[in-house]
Design a protein around this nucleic acid. Structure first.
Lengths: 202, 202, 202, 202
DNA sequence: AATGAATGAGCATTCATTCAT
DNA sequence: AATGAATGAATGCTCATTCAT
């Protein structure tokens, strides 16, 4: 095919781009955003500083790409549950499990998002807040539906939504930081139990 | 007494030191650690950069003092509950309320600790982890006691402890960020309900 | 007086500022704007890079200050002649002489302005054009007055104004570059003769 | 002929080389030497950066080729006048006109040479000086001849030569920068009148 | 004690040039 | 020959910390 060569070049570029993203995650996670030098990223990726700037306009940009990708993954998963008229409790438990699984796959970005992002600077603190609020709003809608059909007790649903969203993040972060002392299944089981019972019980 | 003059000098020094601490909190909270200049702190405190270094050895040191003070306040409050053989549920609810009240008094440091600290650099991420783990360990002891007397269902108590500690932090941070849309009492009521029911219910 | 100390500090600052300006002129003249490092300027001034930025916001700013000062000096001298209803020929000759004298005092800035400025970048090319046009406009007014009273032959006065302004610059630049082979008085005498006769003769 | 193919290749190469030269002039004139990227030149020429270096060894080299070509054109025109035992005044006027015409044809290089070259760096400042001095020397010879036969008044002929050479450059540059407000013929007429009268009149 | 001027190490980014394909 | 991806040296500017007064 006429496009074979071009395709190959495209694939190479994408590969290189990915290698930068991976290197950046690793370094951001290990040293933090400010203590990561662009040189650290390129050394990890096995290239030169100059080349990095063919793929990303700045150190900030690569950070934002990482975070955006991660955020989209999470938000979309939450949106799936919004399609139910009234989501059944098991589907909620499944969501919690799915999210933890995503976190584990993108473990380092997840930790950067959860623990570091807001501390980097004002700009990222605000961006994280925006992302969190979007998530909380959607979860709030789900909880409100559950409340309307009498599944759960009276409560401030937005606060509960915040406790859900943050609870999942916290549990995951704690799990990693504590060296995965319990199994992932136990984590998911206990976490969802906690959140659901905290919300539902009358 | 001979020491009167000396005392006065001491009191002045302490006053100046406090004004630096307050200025630093304000600036760290508004701009973040990295975007705060030592000059910002001294301008807020109404003095000079040179003078700052008579009271603190570095920008990091003043940050650490702030965080340490805050951490001690929190940890001590938790320790109070450890004195019970078995803490009654109402005393637990009271603890949650007390903590939220401390947070509100030290609102800015609380937010810096909760949202920013881990993102500043590796060193502070680890320090925060240490502080969190200490808190979680102590709360774990409380929960374990409750479990041993059959007040709560089977669960990984350390995970639950983590969810309690983080839950209080998250709820407070959300409350501030969302503009205190609900009253503090409602916040405390709903939060403790959530945490206690998430733990207790069988 | 209470202000003595403050005055001294002010004087010191002004002295330091001047030393930067002198160092910058020297380096710009010798190496050109782009090949001058901020470090070169501070080394010549006997200070540090960081300190330079207490006095000037950028390498561009110090360049602009130099050029602006020089331009004002020149433009004001030209304006003096505009006060005459009709400037007598000797006063014109005097202007040429005065300008050459200013150039000699500010020899290096003059050469930077004349020979280098337009080649540094688009921005400075345009700035120089603006300055030149202002000068040419004012000289044009003078020439137009002379024309209106019949002192000079018919001609495009703006072109003549441009030839006057540039002629003075060129003559000075040539004089310096050629190692001052003729005396300053001879330079002034021959130059003004050339410009006046080129304009006046019928 | 056997050389036909080779000739064609040669012609193609020459064409490509010319397209680089034209692209470079355009970009140097519009953005200046330092603000022109090699990529700008190749984009204008419709090729790639890599290819550029098959034709020129550096960004400096293409600049020097442009300037050299232009300088030769000018110098040769001046040399023509040197063939006269004593050049008649009309032939001098013709020279001025011819030069302006060359400038107009090579308008962009002319402006780069006149306004920018000396400001790029020390090296080019010196190169321009050399070129200018050569021109001034030759014009000096012409003027000296005129002086020796009593056509012109006593004066420093080298200064006059400098005023001639620079005057032509300045007039052209002014004419372009002011948007060609007067016709080329008027420009030539008034300029030569100015220069000749400035030199000749007694 | 207090001031703020001075220091200089440190870093993101650019871009001419090279080189693999 | 042509392409454009890759290289890495080079530099303006910042800011925590020091120090002379």
């Amino acid at each position: 095919m006429a496009s074979t060569r071009k395709d190959k070049v495209e694939r190479e570029k994408e590969k290189r781009r990915k290698s930068y993203l991976m290197a950046a995650v690793k370094s951001f996670q290990e040293k933090g955003f400010y203590e990561t030098r662009v040189k650290d990223i390129t050394t990890l990726a096995g290239t030169s500083v100059g080349n990095f700037y063919r793929y990303f306009n700045s150190k900030e940009e690569i950070f934002e790409v990482l975070i955006d990708n991660f955020n989209n993954l999470i938000q979309n998963k939450v949106l799936e549950l919004l399609e139910y008229e009234v989501p059944p409790i098991p589907s909620i438990k499944k969501l919690f499990g799915d999210l933890i699984k995503i976190f584990e796959e993108k473990s380092n970005v997840a930790l950067i998002f959860i623990d570091q992002m807001a501390g980097i600077n004002k700009k990222y603190a605000e961006l994280k807040e925006t992302y969190m609020n979007t998530g909380i709003e959607n979860v709030d809608k789900i909880i409100t539906k559950l409340h309307d059909v009498g599944f759960i007790r009276d409560q401030n649903t937005t606060l509960t939504a915040s406790l859900w969203v943050n609870g999942i993040f916290d549990a995951f972060s704690w799990w990693i930081r504590s060296g995965k002392k319990i199994s992932k299944d136990e984590l998911i089981e206990d976490l969802t139990d906690f959140l659901v019972r905290g919300t539902v019980s009358k």
